[in-house]
Design a protein around this nucleic acid. Structure first.
Lengths: 336, 336
DNA sequence: ATGAAAGCGCTAACAA
DNA sequence: TTGTTAGCGCTTTCAT
């Protein structure tokens, strides 16, 4: 099935030159190769549809021009944009991307690091989900540079981080709710296990404090980042008789669920209850065009991560662990 | 930066055996290697965290255990599930997946085929968008097996196809509308360039014919697979004074846009206008939980494609070009 | 049960 | 300006 591929040797023989010459021509190291030779070789190569074997090349150069992208689940609408951003930047620089879904499973993450190492990727972009902070993780054993997206974790191999300031973003969001006149602001969180989530909570609390609003434990509901949980949480709030006039949600999916349930309860948005989401994932604006939310620059995060990674790979290898904090944007629509 | 990696040679030396022995042990070709040796080698390998270099291996075996996945755009909600299905199957069989976004660009597709060939992927899953039928395309030059998803195209390298019967699916959908009592059924198509689209149109027309409903050109609006187009098309229908009582949409995005616009025009769904989508993409049910639609088994398509591909790669290389037609499902909700 | 040796296709000195 | 050669790390006969 696989047609026998023509090699550099075939080309060299047919052109009557050495393989070194052909190699140089194909690597643009042909400063001093006569135009005639170059043309002849090129023609023959084209004629036989010669495509260099990058395995062989990589074996000697130690570079595969391939990156790994580890993320929880490409089906989660949060990730395709990141993937796309990364792929665009990668392609631009001649790299390809191997995609790895981990389902938030730590073992799977480690497994992938091993596979990627085996495949000799030049670097890894890592959007890990679970907190690795308390783990003597596989990251240490990884031999290539790693860029972290959306998570802060320290390790020798981590050469860069692309983050957003979750605390500040939440703070801004809640401040907006307060300025709109809401006072009893509940918080439906997706989780409290990640630093991301903790920071968001912190921002929320600080906004309340700074405005002399008393914080109450019962205002906080912790579940998952899914719209179903948004619905459940609202139900819970009502069942528990919590008195609230606004909801700050851990992400847009939760917000969408919450809005739906609020309407079922006959609440008007934003007159009765103000609501705010987080993430502004693809299609969220389609689902609830009126949802006020905090927009996380996913495409840009992927793009920047790839950029940093490639720089770390190709750069002068100085240990410049860099950290970019991207701006979030408060997108105010009609829900608050 | 890149730590010097330990090689099979290091292990062999330390274990006091030949590299051939180590190699055999790692490839489970160790029928006749003493348990003692095996254990010793394994321990030393573990100790030094030895990870075989798959470049070197591939160079001799001609197998990279890597597949290419070419698709228009991972951000389009149609594709993540396909990608995930493919990745799951691939991983299960020890393969990785390189992802390639082409933006429906033929040149980009060809470019990727070249890159993937260079990287020596073992096969390619191809969800191409534009019609390749009239093109002396790069597919011919590809050296590895290809599985097509959702598109029918013939070429030597195409070892399999995963399709749905678009004509039949549309037919079923429109029949449903007719049974519900709708008679003036318009069709907002996303395109008419692809075979897929042509088949869907054919199914639509046949359903009308079979029920003695006259087909009218003005019933058909052709645009793009986006919700914005759904909105525009509805506006157009009204502006042109087309008399209709139902809309069959090229995909769910279009349907969602159409519904939104219909509501703006004060139409009740399904009392005034019945509506039906196609695809049942992720989140579509969130956006419009009541949208009646035709569910395309995306995850399964990706999964099956990877399965066929791996079989073609590892199989006995008989030229069994296979073709699977997956079942669509009519998901009836409240919009029709 | 194990080792020696010949490559896989290519790059990168170093020669010429 | 071009050719020779020594590997890169591994698999795979063929010997032993």
């Amino acid at each position: 099935m696989k047609k026998k591929s023509v090699t550099i040797k075939d080309i060299a023989k047919e052109a009557g030159v050495s393989i070194a010459t052909v190699s140089m021509i194909f690597n643009n190291k042909d400063k001093n190769i006569s135009q005639g030779t170059r043309d002849r070789v090129m023609n023959i190569a084209k004629l036989h549809n010669y495509i260099p074997n990058s395995m062989a090349r990589s074996l000697v150069t130690k570079r595969t021009k391939t990156l790994g992208l580890i993320l929880p689940d490409i089906v989660n609408p949060f990730f395709p944009e990141i993937a796309r951003g990364a792929e665009d930047k990668a392609r631009e620089s001649g790299y390809s991307i191997i995609i790895c879904n981990t389902d938030d499973n730590l073992e799977q993450e480690d497994r992938y690091i091993e596979i990627l190492t085996e495949k000799m990727v030049d670097g890894i972009i890592f959007t890990h989900s679970a907190d690795r902070n308390n783990t003597n993780s596989g990251l240490e054993r990884c031999r290539v540079p790693i860029i972290l997206i959306d998570r802060d974790y320290d390790s020798d191999n981590v050469k860069g981080k692309v983050l957003i300031d979750n605390g500040e973003a939440s703070y801004k969001g809640v401040i907006h709710l307060i300025e709109k006149g809401y006072r009893k602001i509940t918080y439906i969180a997706g989780s409290l296990n990640t630093q991301t989530a903790k920071d968001r909570l912190k921002g929320y609390r600080k906004a309340l404090e700074d405005n002399g609003i008393e914080f109450e434990e019962k205002y906080i509901k912790v579940g998952e980042y899914r719209s179903l949980w948004g619905m459940e949480a609202v139900t819970l709030l009502f069942e528990e008789g919590v008195d609230f006039d606004a909801i700050f949600c851990g992400n847009d999916l939760i917000a969408i669920g919450a809005m739906k349930k609020l309407k079922e309860f006959g609440k008007r948005i934003p007159e009765d209850i103000g609501i705010m989401g987080f993430d502004d994932i693809y299609m969220a604006s389609l689902v609830e065009p009126e949802l006020t939310t905090i927009k996380q620059p996913n495409y840009e995060m992927g793009h920047k991560a790839a950029q940093m990674l490639i720089r770390a790979i190709e750069g002068n290898e100085k240990n410049t662990e860099s950290k970019i904090i991207l701006e979030t944007e408060l997108v105010v629509r009609k829900s608050s």
